[in-house]
């Protein structure tokens, strides 16, 4: 496969990860911050950007470690532990870097960065890229797409919840109840995108 087709494939995977195979709404990964931090659009934007950045970078890092260290030593079964360690270390590193170079951004993202370490969408994306045998370029597209997909989903959720804050919701459904119903409806809506790529 030449580079051009790979880039095209990466692009397609990226788009499909945003819409048809949305990591949050199709696989329901990364639900805790999705429900916990989606009360305001402002905070969810911060968290969303942090997820895009960390997800893309760790996918690339994990791909390199997996293919150049674990596969040659036939230690693939250790990928869970290794991926988690790498994600945790990377988040630490980014925190330090941001604190030094941009205190303002650090303060804005600061609270969310440690949260991302335990966001299962990040680990999920790294594991999917292994299961699906993606090449490096496709992995970049997949990581970026998954991040953007998660970002879109949480922003949409936050927007809806902000609107709902002033509405009358039955007592038993307030809080997590209505949030899960919204998530379900959004997931249904996103499956509508499935036809777009298949049609091609």
């Amino acid at each position: 496969m030449n580079v051009n087709t790979e880039i095209w494939q990466g692009f397609v995977v990226c788009i499909s990860a945003v819409f048809t195979n949305n990591i949050l709404l199709n696989y329901f990964l990364g639900m805790c911050p999705f429900l916990g931090c989606s009360r305001e659009v402002k905070t969810s934007v911060g968290l969303g950007f942090a997820v895009i950045f960390v997800l893309t970078s760790t996918c690339i890092l994990n791909w390199l470690i997996y293919h150049y260290v674990l596969v040659p030593l036939s230690l693939e079964f250790f990928r869970f532990i290794i991926f988690i360690i790498i994600i945790a270390a990377f988040v630490q590193f980014v925190e330090m870097l941001l604190d030094r170079t941009s205190p303002l951004l650090y303060q804005k993202l600061g609270i969310f960065l440690p949260l991302i370490t335990v966001n299962c969408a990040i680990l999920g994306a790294s594991l999917f890229m292994v299961i699906r045998n993606h090449s490096l370029i496709v992995t970049i597209g997949y990581g970026l797409g998954s991040g953007i997909g998660w970002f879109l989903a949480i922003i949409a959720m936050a927007g809806i919840r902000q609107k709902l804050a002033n509405e009358h919701i039955p007592k038993g459904l307030q809080g997590p109840g209505i949030a899960l119903i919204i998530a379900g409806l959004m997931a249904l809506a996103f499956t509508g995108f499935a036809g777009v790529l298949q049609g091609n």
Binding site: V69, I81, I82, A89, F93, M96, L97, R100
Partner: peptide, 21 residues
């Protein structure tokens, strides 16, 4: 292997901390 990967990462973080923090 696992220990050395973890040690490498810890070492890198320490170096990063030395430069950034």
């Amino acid at each position: 292997i696992i220990s050395s990967i973890a040690a490498c990462l810890a070492g890198l973080l320490n170096i990063a901390e030395y430069f950034f923090a």
